[in-house]
Amino acid sequence: MKAPDFDYLRPETLAEAMDMLSRHGEDGAIIAGGQSLLPLLNFRLAGPERLIDIGRLAALKQIVDGDGFVEIGALVRHCDLASSEAVARAFPLLRQAVGHIAHPAVRHRGTIGGSLAMADPAAELGACCLALEAEMSLQSVRGQRWVRAVDFFAGIYETALAPDEILTAVRLPRRGPDSVQIFSEVARRRGDFAIAGLALVADNHMANPRLALLGVADRPILAEKTMALLANNMAAADQAIELIGNEIDPAEDPAYPPAYRRQLVRTLLRRTLMELLP
């Protein structure tokens, strides 16, 4: 369980990093906190010729408390996310979710950009980005583009990132003052990958609900039919709980059969909606 040989590059600036990627993107891999990539290397499931360590790009470590949005740099670590007042004020969902990410040691190294770019379907932050209508900043020597979270995730460990692009930031539009944000998941032990999870974001009286699910498909997904049913209609809660289990189509898994995951999302939605009852 030792990584295959690789070259190691450490750019000092974003421009330098993009330049390296433009030359080595196809056979290189970006490393930040290393919490996903290093195990893959050690298992020899990945074998890039070069690692491009973006850990020194200070510009990517900022949380910008902007007007109408909060922008979180890709190198912001999970522990930074948990302790940011700006994030806590605007997006309590993120603080709730971060508490479920692994253990303190991982949260002190792992970054939001690393988690999103890895695109593990069971990761908490991807579902949160979907629920919060995040946009991802993708930069390369060819320029910068913004991609909506719903378009960013393309499949298991697959994203819209081109080989020469770096995910530099995530921009989250502010919600109204009555915004409801609830995150929950089921894991066997504290800190385990979730078997299934649910992020609910809505305005008052279940207006504009967004229900994002993790762990139940090849990527984080929105339960769109259930969202439509629930919109401005808490009275449809029982129907919604039934529907959300049918709306998903989890893959066969020897440990957790699809029927179990359907049952979990129903339970998660029921418990989430219970919290909203007066």
Binding site: V186, R188, Y256, P257, A259, Y260, R262, Q263
Partner: peptide, 11 residues
């Protein structure tokens, strides 16, 4: 958990 829910007739 899946074994237990199966025993309970939930799945």
């Amino acid at each position: 958990p899946p074994r237990l829910l199966k025993a309970l007739g939930q799945i």
